[in-house]
Design a binder for these strands. Structure first.
Lengths: 217, 217
DNA sequence: TAGATTGTTAATCGATTAACAATC
DNA sequence: TAGATTGTTAATCGATTAACAATC
């Protein structure tokens, strides 16, 4: 792998999971090696982009041969840090939190969900996919006894920032946020990735409006 | 509004929902007008970008004054097509489908969820947030009697493409897809927006790995 | 009017694509 | 070896930022 001091373009980083997904499908088809041109055709991008993207991280291919599918996928897994194990908690055991707790691929990719937290007496004490839902008041004592790296925030917009603040003050630094807010924080070592479902819905709405307008002329 | 024949950069389109969110917060604070510089500071972008972005759609500001918050927000709502009503069905009444069916902001933004479909006898016939979960076998007859624009696919990866194919053959053209696949389709009038939760998780993982590696030197 | 701030043009920066020498 | 295909440099394209004249 190349020196990692060079900053990788954000666009490239966001394409990595997509390569990872496609390589899985290709592997499942029993294809052993693939050229950048064939991979690019499947993914609907240019072969140049495939080669440029991958070359940010290393020389994974071989002239005249292409890329070994299984090897390339493994290398991308390494780049994405999927070989590392990350202890995770889910904050909010509503439908969204429950959906995530049932996501079967997470453990396989190093995300070890330890437990969920909620404030609803109806769900506290129940188990979801074998994991206990704890009272959010137990957060402090739980974090004192368990190492937690990532918190998944599946909470209403109104409380998300304050829960994040609380988690940050307790030493959690990595977040996957599902609420339609951009989390605020001072510590530059904190990393937040957001999934804004309603933003996607609005983008879809825009594209629908645009296409219908074009149809009219 | 400016002529819409000019193609708006994708990056701009994806920022629109973010403007829309921020303007709501600003409105809720009772702020009546805002300059591009103040808005840019809140959003962590440049004032130039704010003005360039908005000027793709029209002259919403006024020299020496700035932008009227409520007016600008309304205009963005129009651009996003949130004033139009869109009949929606949700395919898959698992936890994710249920979470979306309970999303309180959807109706307010023109997304009228009509019903959910599933193949699990345990949930067929139940109601979620007042909406009936129907047997997926009823899809054809339902679509014959009800106009449906958008299908939200909250299904396992393995069945998502085939359900999409079925919906497309029945005339549905707009999709919000939650499965970790890129839907395939021939008809260029079909529009798909995807929410790839596991891609976001992998991006987070990459950024964690990167930051820990940097710490080590 | 003077001050503020937009809308817009021009300059810069970054990302994508094309081309080809290197090499398996 | 000849053919295929990479890795990489150079050219192009697009998006962001800077600057400022227009104007409220």
């Amino acid at each position: 792998m190349k020196s990692s001091t060079v900053t990788i373009p954000n666009a490239v980083i966001h394409r990595l999971p997509r390569y990872y997904r496609y390589l899985r499908d290709i592997m499942d088809e029993g294809v052993e090696r693939i050229s950048s041109i064939d991979l690019s055709k499947r993914m609907g991008v240019t072969a140049s982009q495939v080669r440029q993207d991958l070359n940010h991280f290393g020389d994974f291919g071989q002239q005249g041969y292409g890329y070994n599918v299984a090897y390339l996928r493994e290398e991308i897994a390494k780049i994405l840090g999927l070989s590392e194990s990350h202890p995770v908690i889910i904050f909010g055991a509503g439908h969204l939190g429950t959906a995530i707790a049932n996501h079967s691929n997470f453990p396989r990719r190093g995300f070890e969900i330890l437990t969920l937290f909620d404030n609803d007496p109806k769900v506290i004490g129940t188990t979801i996919n074998g994991m206990l839902v704890r009272d959010e008041n137990e957060l402090e004592s739980f974090l004192a006894e368990n190492k937690v790296e990532i918190a998944i925030l599946a909470l209403p917009k109104a409380v998300t920032q304050s829960v994040a603040d609380r988690l940050i003050s307790l030493g959690v630094r990595y977040f996957l946020n599902f609420a339609p807010v951009d989390l605020r924080y001072d510590d530059p070592s904190i990393i937040v990735e957001s999934v804004h479902i309603s933003d996607s819905m609005m983008t879809l709405s825009y594209r629908i409006a645009k296409s219908q307008e074009e149809k009219k002329g």
